[in-house]
């Protein structure tokens, strides 16, 4: 049986993890390779690296980090953040990334999705969508949820898939950081609308939130950062808990 995936997300700047992590046993908590290896050993199903660096020089650092991670871990990983061209994606995949995620660049120029899908295959193109509710409507936002766009979540999700997205990563800005659970109503609606896997993001606080996003939100995967980094939830314990609640996991 296909299992539901648990995906820790690591924020990266200049080749280092930025959010504080609470792994006391790590020699270097800022080393993405060491943290990634730890998560892989603990049973994470996939990893997402979100690069928040900007300059060209720092992009080269990212390529090297991707290579080091690919060398170290034996589970798939996605790299996102600031990707805006076929060349950007080529460099990351050549260095061993399995998938890339695009966000703002796809909203600004939706043709990019098709260009990437044709060149690299839909299976490695994740379209990340940040959205929050304004007057009862889910509106797509850019720049980490700061800038509203004209686009509505469900229309954009459908268009992204039609253009070649192989997977969607939906972050509810209304839920992100609240630790009150995922946006399950919107996730469920998304899952009915498109026929690609959906990664739920934003709102993880308890193990029950993961059960809910799989059972009620019909998500294929759930992504979280701080609950894992700060050891509030350990992945092996979460997997056991999910199993007890009849959610298929590895």
């Amino acid at each position: 049986m296909l299992t539901k995936r648990i995906i820790p997300c690591l924020d990266i700047k200049d080749g280092r993890t930025v959010k504080g992590v609470n792994f006391v046993s790590l020699r270097d908590a800022g080393d993405p390779v060491e943290l990634a290896s730890r998560y892989a050993e603990e049973g994470a199903d996939e990893l997402v690296f979100l690069d928040i660096s900007a300059s060209e020089e720092k992009r080269k650092t990212l390529a090297k980090m991707v290579r080091d991670v690919a060398r170290a871990i034996d589970i798939p990983f996605t790299v996102g953040g600031g990707i805006s061209s076929v060349e950007d994606v080529g460099v990351l995949l050549d260095n061993g990334a399995d998938k890339v995620s695009i966000n703002s660049s796809a909203v600004r120029r939706p043709e990019l999705i098709r260009e990437l899908a044709q060149r690299f295959g839909t299976q490695c193109i994740v379209v990340a969508i940040d959205a929050k509710q304004l007057n009862g409507e889910w509106i797509v936002h850019l720049v980490g949820g700061k800038v509203p766009t004209e686009r509505r979540l469900f229309e954009w999700a459908k268009e992204a898939v039609e253009r070649g997205a192989g997977e969607l990563l939906f972050t509810s800005m209304d839920h992100d950081g609240t630790k009150q659970g995922f946006a399950n109503t919107a996730l469920n609606e998304l899952s009915k609308l498109v026929q690609v896997p959906i990664i739920a993001s934003g709102g993880a606080g308890t193990m029950n939130h993961f059960v809910d996003t799989f059972a009620l939100g019909n998500a294929d995967a759930a992504l979280a950062a701080s609950v894992f980094h700060f050891k509030e939830i350990s992945i092996p314990t979460l997997k056991t808990y999910l199993q007890q609640h009849k959610i298929p996991v590895r």
């Binding site: 049986m1 296909l2 995936r5 299976q123 192989g166 997977e167 026929q195 690609v196 896997p197 294929d220």
Partner: peptide, 12 residues
């Protein structure tokens, strides 16, 4: 199938 395509993830 009415399942998601691609088939993506860990299966037995």
């Amino acid at each position: 199938t009415n399942l998601n395509v691609p088939h993506m993830g860990w299966n037995t």
